[in-house]
Amino acid sequence: MNRIEQRLNQNISNGVKSFITYMTAGLPNYDTTKKLVKAQEEAGIDVIEIGVPFSDPIADGPVIQQASFEAIQNGATIDKTFAMMKELREENVNVPIVFMLYYNTILHYGPEEFAVQCKACGIDGLIVPDLPMEEQDELKTFLSDDTILIQLVSPVSNDRVDQILSDAKGFVYCVSSMGVTGQAADFHKEVKNYLSMIKSKSKIPVMMGFGIRDAKDVSPFISDIDGAIVGTHFIDLMRTSNYDSKVASDYVTKFKQDLNNTNK
């Protein structure tokens, strides 16, 4: 069983909601990225999404776009990001880690070689927001069970939901609003019904993302999800704290505590 599946399924068995953060690789540099990963692992984060910087991150709002731009300006590359991952695993960092990236990066690298590098570096999952279900077969052919492809659904997935969920692994990433990331809890008007529908159909954990800042943002939906994902707010927090590891650790600890207190 994949590390993501082990962690999230264990949480469900224990009645615990899961928490995932997103951060951009190489922002402000790779050494700091590593420190932030380690701080979050120690604080009890369940999964970390690491964004691979890309010049045209179409699913992301201004904050993550700027983060990606700055990381690239500072020299971030896919090969350096792979190297960072290898170092983290060699340094006994075992938290499940997902790469969030755009398909052009994979295509340019070569899907088969990309999959080989993912397995070698201990990457547990991939989120590829611009790779629709109908075009995933080639990449899936090369991925092992060690690196699973996470599926996204949205409030307008409608008739595609059953097909998307039929082959979903790890967790279902439920986009809670239309448009790009970082929309400050401006959730879709039908988000409650949508999440309830996904939860009733999904055989794997359901995670809610986009626009979340703290646990109270998801409290109205807590019975319909298995956890929450925070990206833009976490990057903002890191910027304002000058990428302070203790701030990252404290945020993870408090969010997860609040999330599970909401659940009681």
Rank of each mutant, 00 (worst) to 15 (best):
V16M: 02
N260E: 04
G231F: 00
V52M: 15
D124M: 11
G51M: 06
V218S: 03
E41N: 05
Y173H: 14
K80V: 03
S196D: 05
Y103M: 05
Q65I: 08
T262W: 01
P53C: 03
S223R: 07
E134L: 13
T253F: 11
Q136P: 01
Q163F: 04
L139C: 08
A120T: 12
E135K: 14
F210P: 09
S154G: 13
D60Y: 09
E87W: 05
L101D: 02
T141P: 07
I106H: 11
I58C: 07
S200N: 13
F114V: 05
I106A: 12
P53A: 01
I12S: 09
I97G: 11
Q66E: 14
A71S: 14
L152K: 10
S166R: 11
V37C: 08
Y194M: 00
D130R: 14
I148R: 14
K17Y: 01
V98K: 05
M178Q: 06
E42W: 03
N242P: 00
S241R: 12
I222S: 04
S200I: 03
L101Y: 04
E190G: 12
L101P: 00
T33K: 08
D137N: 08
C118D: 08
P220D: 06
M84N: 06
S176V: 02
I222N: 03
D79Q: 15
V16C: 01
N104I: 10
G179C: 10
N193D: 14
G51K: 13
A83T: 05
Q136A: 13
Y109L: 00
L131Y: 14
D217C: 11
A215L: 05
N11M: 04
G51N: 10
F82L: 15
M84Y: 02
E113T: 09
E70V: 12
I164L: 09
I222P: 00
S166F: 09
V98G: 03
L27T: 05
G15C: 09
V63F: 04
G75S: 07
F114P: 04
A185Y: 12
V47T: 09
Y251A: 15
D159I: 13
Y102S: 08
N242Q: 15
K189R: 13
L139M: 13
Q257T: 13
Q117W: 00
D60P: 12
D124T: 15
R213S: 15
Y194L: 00
S241D: 07
F255Q: 10
E135Q: 13
S55Y: 03
R7T: 13
V156Q: 10
D145M: 03
K199F: 04
Y22G: 02
I4S: 07
Y194A: 00
Q6T: 11
I20S: 01
A25T: 08
I48F: 04
K254I: 02
Q40G: 04
S68Q: 01
L259A: 14
N92M: 06
F234H: 11
G75E: 09
I229C: 02
E49L: 08
V116E: 12
P28Y: 06
G61K: 11
E135A: 06
R213G: 10
R89F: 03
T32E: 06
N158A: 14
A115K: 13
